[in-house]
Amino acid sequence: MGITQLLFWLLTTLTLGSALMVIFSKNPVYSILWLIITFFAISGHYVLLNAQFLAIVNIIVYAGAIMVLFLFVVMLMNLNMPSSPLKNKWLMFAGVISGGSLLLVLVAALKDTEAMRNGILMQTGDIGLIHNLGKVLFKDYILPFEISSVLFLSAMIGAVVIGKKA
């Protein structure tokens, strides 16, 4: 077992374990902290795949910015309110069913992907390096890229408009 594989298993355990802890933690703040650890572990996976850019952007955007906003919200919540357990049994049942079907869809979708068939190339391939990624984004996928940026812009303007109204 090479060092890469060892790291892979370590990171995978960490990812899944901390992702589970996100759900099982009683304290929402702990949930967020576990989520941050999950993001870190995922970034570790990116590094193993030689996608440094994705790894660091994942950290900057998710761990560094979005999770801070999550923390903002949770910290300002009144955590002393007794959390009411789910009373409705049917609601629980519905939740289990919808979650299960989501899992089913995901598995079905990922089962036949290219990566699954070929196996993931660890530490090879340089599509994740910033030069190549930039070229791919700005040459092959320029239209979707620009459309998504327009989407972000409109979301931003929308937020400003809502903020001005209040």
């Binding site: 440094q52 850019f53 660091i56 950290i59 761990a63 560094g64 910290m75």
Partner: peptide, 24 residues
């Protein structure tokens, strides 16, 4: 690493956590 500056930004953006967790 070929993303040196981004690494710095990443770590700087994490610096907020010490402050926030400590404060909370």
């Amino acid at each position: 690493i070929n993303i040196g500056i981004l690494y710095i930004f990443g770590v700087v953006s994490l610096g907020v956590y010490g402050m926030m967790i400590g404060g909370w």
